[in-house]
């Protein structure tokens, strides 16, 4: 296809099209955006690796320094970093596992089975999705107090263990990607609901599980307001709350606080980079199927 100015930049025709100048222009603009996206991380690294005095100086120092390890040591000394990291991992993993299990199970049922009141029940599910979380912030706290779960990680994992979004999303996926023929073949072999779920649905669900899993994991990891409210035990916090406390308690030690921020950002970025390709592809798929 020749360099064709009237070809719109967009939708499917863009491969190799456009003049060399417009291609370079696109790349430049995109790189600019990447710079903006990633710059705060670079800045975080710079601030975490210099001293507080250097942070306050004007003009500001623009390159990383040599104090990173020292600042990180201070962080560990001042807050229970590894403890809260561990708690965050436990919450994120356990929560994700529960969500994946309950959501896929329910989605499988909704997508591939007929039972009385199925439409009504699913409708209720959709409606529940509309309820904003903040409405239940206060009463949920009271409920946790009544259950004796306040200050415990249970409060972070169990209430959110099945969420409407996950079920809705996986049901779409199941309807589109779970062939009835396989299920019927399984039924002929004598498999019941749960065996079908285990042996047919789950393997086919894998990409959706991967996406939902990463999505949920990230959400749980970064959750702030609910842990802030319900983790009343100062010795059992998640990373986000511990970091916020560090910021409040030592807010003039900018370098140390920044090191703490860096330390809490890295684990999730690493996890994300590992699963990125999967995640991004399925994010796109999910969005268009909505």
């Amino acid at each position: 296809m020749a360099a064709d100015r009237t070809t719109p930049v967009g939708a499917g025709l863009a491969i190799g099209s456009g003049s060399r100048r417009s291609r370079v222009g696109v790349r430049v603009l995109l790189l600019l955006g990447v710079l903006v996206s990633l710059f705060p991380f670079y800045w975080l690294v710079v601030m975490a690796s210099i001293t507080t005095q250097e942070i306050l100086q004007f003009p500001p120092r623009l390159v990383p320094g040599t104090h990173l390890l020292e600042n990180m040591r201070e962080v560990i000394h001042r807050i229970d970093f590894f403890g809260s990291l561990f708690n965050t991992v436990v919450v994120s993993v356990a929560g994700t596992v529960l969500v994946l299990f309950f959501d896929s199970l329910a989605a499988f049922a909704f997508a591939k089975y007929e039972f009385p009141a199925r439409k009504l029940l699913f409708g209720i599910l959709l409606a529940t999705y509309m309820i904003p979380g903040q409405l239940s912030l206060v009463p949920q706290f009271v409920t946790m107090a009544d259950f004796g779960w306040a200050g415990s990680l249970k409060a972070l994992v169990i209430p959110g263990a099945a969420n409407a979004f996950g079920i809705f999303w996986m049901r779409q996926y199941a309807q589109n990607s779970l062939p009835d023929e396989l299920l019927d073949a399984g039924r002929i072999d004598g498999a019941g609901f749960f065996r079908l779920y285990r042996q047919v649905a789950l393997p086919l669900f894998r990409p959706a599980l991967a996406f939902l899993g990463i999505f949920t994991f990230i959400q749980l990891w970064n959750d702030y307001i609910w842990p802030l409210v319900v983790l009343v035990n100062p010795d059992r916090l998640t990373l986000q709350v511990a970091l916020a406390n560090l910021n409040v308690a030592y807010n003039t030690d900018y370098a140390v606080v920044m090191a703490g921020a860096l330390m809490s950002v890295i684990p999730l970025i690493v996890v994300f980079l590992i699963g990125a390709r999967h995640f991004l592809r399925d994010l796109a798929a999910g969005a268009t199927k909505m």
Partner: peptide, 26 residues
């Protein structure tokens, strides 16, 4: 299948166990 199931079960089990541990006391 069973390997994957085992993985899933152990993940879930570990999670639940940790939960149980972290919930008790006070």
């Amino acid at each position: 299948m069973s390997r994957r199931r085992l993985l899933g079960a152990s993940l879930g089990g570990a999670g639940a166990a940790l939960l149980g541990l972290s919930g008790c006391g006070s």
